[in-house]
Design a protein around this nucleic acid. Structure first.
Length: 581
RNA sequence: GACCUGGUAGCUCAGUUGGUAGAGCACCUCCCUUUUAAGGAGGUGGUCCUGGGUUCGAGCCCCAGCCCGGUCACCA
């Protein structure tokens, strides 16, 4: 199917010129395969009879039997009239043995001498039919009788070799290349694939746990008119038909609570959330949070549920509750310690800050060396104290409970202390993994809390929280007492797979776009150089300095702006040209 | 956003006070029918991230920028 216009001759020339010698050889091999009557991209189904994993795990029952396998050829050891190669399918890798006289039907041995030895390369996808056997040195192999080309690879893969000691040589380890070309990473780095398989095991484990309890998995809007449920800068977009702004959700909390109002007893959602903030080892602009809300429960119940859930997740994904995270061994075996946040501060700073006002708290902060500024209220100060003095101590899973009210606008007031809330964060390896509340369901108090938040953030910034009037309306109809939790799934996967970077647990982490090499003509270069020396400058001045004819000038400047190398601004002072980005 | 590392062949990396651009693997040619980081002989391959500057001469020094990574800041 040809959806795009055919390549012109000159385009082909340019493309060929950009190819590396290795790529040119492969394209020539592709052509020669076709000349031999071999379709390098056949359409028909290739029926396999086994997977590599099945064979290796039940070798005795396969030995001597015929199998049909398909996969990518990862390496070759050619020895004259016989060769070994490594075949990799979705389940694993195994060796195949290829003998000239067994796979070739003609006297010249074309299939072996020409097709296999000359025209196939590492990375090609092939199908084989052959007999399972063990070599002299005892390696499980398949003796190939028939070889089928299933897909010719035109780009060379990085060559990664593993020696007898399991030591990896020339590992494909450049982070930028690995993330930009994750498909290559997945092909050559088996452990990367394992990480992502484990990620799915983790989410399946959670779903399984909830579904067995008849909790309902739901989907709520990603495009929201008011980005609520958290305080973060949202991504903004625009709906043309409604002519209104819409935001990518920063959280789904307020929508799930609406569903609890609507009469569901328990709802959960794996929510892709989006926050327009900095990126680093633990933050990606889009990330996944699992949020769960259960009616008639409180945060104490939620702690028990969380312990049970994480113990199961660890067992399902790692077959043990003891998980190595960095240098630490972390046990996900229930129960977990429960420490009120003020108690934690007392333990790690020696100061009992319960009931302290802003002034007294600032004094404590100074004494223990925590930086403060004027804008910080009681809640923020306690948060800072905990964050810098306590958090990193909690390596084993620990519920930090009973946060100050000021920090928790969606949380129900504590049943015994009106200054606190019924909230916990679960700390693991010194980081927050989950955040849960007894949800605030008093609509009048909720409105007041929102208004307090508005005051706190009302410093003329663009993050001022909107009040979601519809959410308040829903609460006014009555929401049962409810407990909710959000678990950072990316972070959980990082823990369970012992990765310290979020990019290692996302298939396609956000990256800056690749810089495309821009080709400039001589004329364009001339203009570009004048402009570079004096940007921005009046369009007419630039045109005069170029000395170009009207026609030549027009073409050149249009091409430059098309390539974003120059930009024309129409201002009150006249038409200006400046360097593009 | 600030600071620190780095960017050299398809991949992993060396590169001396600033003096002809290097290795291993991959690739090409040849030998080799149970090897396994297969082996042996020979060979091809470079925008040294980009643009300026200093210099007789820059991969190396200086300036500006781009991109990855790290640390910090930001992030209830």
């Amino acid at each position: 199917m040809y959806l795009c216009s055919p390549l012109t001759k000159s385009n082909i020339k340019i493309r060929i010129m950009q190819l590396s010698p290795l790529e040119i050889i492969r394209r020539e091999s592709l052509q020669k395969l076709r000349e031999l009557g071999i379709n390098p991209y056949p359409a028909e189904e290739f029926k396999t009879t086994a997977t590599i994993k099945e064979i290796l795990e039940n070798f005795e029952s396969f030995e001597g039997k015929e199998v049909v396998l398909a996969g990518r050829m990862m390496s070759r050891r050619i020895m004259g009239k016989a060769s070994f190669a490594e075949l990799k399918d979705a389940s694993g890798r195994m060796q195949i043995y290829i003998n000239r006289d067994e796979i070739s039907s003609d006297a010249e041995g074309t299939m072996y001498n020409t097709v296999f030895k000359k025209l196939l390369d590492m990375g090609d996808i092939i199908g084989i039919k052959g007999e399972v056997f063990k070599t002299k040195v005892g390696e499980e192999s398949v003796n190939v009788k028939e070889l089928t080309v299933l897909s010719k690879s035109l780009r060379p893969l990085p060559v990664v070799k593993t020696d007898a000691d399991g030591k990896v040589h020339d590992a494909f380890s450049d982070a930028e290349l690995r993330y930009r070309q994750r498909y290559v990473d997945l092909i050559v780095n088996d452990h990367v694939k394992e990480t992502f398989i484990k990620r799915t095991k983790i989410t399946n484990s959670i779903r399984d746990f909830f579904n067995k309890r008849d909790y309902l998995e739901v989907e709520t809007p990603i495009l929201q008119p008011i980005p609520g449920g958290a305080a973060a800068r949202p991504f903004k977009t625009h709906h043309n038909a409604l002519d209104m702004p819409l935001y990518l959700r920063i959280a789904n909390e307020l929508y799930l609570k609406r569903l609890i109002v609507g009469g569901f007893d328990a709802v959960y959602e794996f929510s892709k959330d989006f926050r327009n903030e900095g990126m680093d080892r633990t933050h990606n602009p889009e990330f996944t949070v699992m949020e769960l809300y259960v009616a008639y429960k409180d945060y104490l119940w939620m702690m028990n549920m969380t312990e049970e859930l994480l113990e199961k997740v660890a067992m399902d994904s790692n077959r043990t509750t003891e998980v190595k995270i960095g240098e630490n061994m972390v046990s996900f075996k229930a129960p977990y310690a429960r420490v009120p946040i003020l108690e934690a501060i007392k333990i790690h700073t020696g100061f009992d800050v319960a009931g302290m006002d802003e002034i007294a708290l600032k004094e404590v902060c100074k004494k223990v060396g925590v930086a403060v500024d004027e804008t910080m209220g009681v809640g923020k100060l306690i948060d800072e104290l905990f964050g810098s003095k306590c958090e990193h101590h909690y390596i084993q899973p620990t519920f930090i409970t009973d946060y100050p009210k000021e920090m928790s606008p969606l949380t129900k007031e504590h049943r015994t202390n009106p200054a606190l809330t019924e909230r916990f964060e679960l700390m693991v390896n010194g980081k927050e993994l989950a955040n849960a509340y007894s949800e605030l369901n008093d609509p009048i108090e909720q409105r007041e809390r929102f208004e307090e938040q508005l005051k706190l953030t009302e410093k003329g910034d663009d993050e001022a929280m909107f009040i979601d009037q519809d959410f308040l309306r829903a609460l006014e109809y009555g929401m049962p007492p409810t407990s909710g939790i959000g678990i950072g799934i990316d972070r959980l996967v990082m823990f369970m797979t012992n990765n310290s970077s979020i990019q290692e647990v996302l298939f396609f982490p956000q990256m800056r776009p690749e810089k495309k090499a821009v080709e400039m003509s001589e004329d364009e270069k001339a203009i570009f150089h004048i402009l570079k020396a004096n940007s921005p400058m009046l369009l007419n001045d630039l045109k005069t300095q170029s000395g170009f004819s009207n026609k030549k000038w027009d073409k050149t400047i249009k091409d430059l702006t098309k390539k974003s190398l120059a930009k024309i601004n129409n201002t009150e002072e006249g038409l200006f040209v400046e360097l593009g980005k």
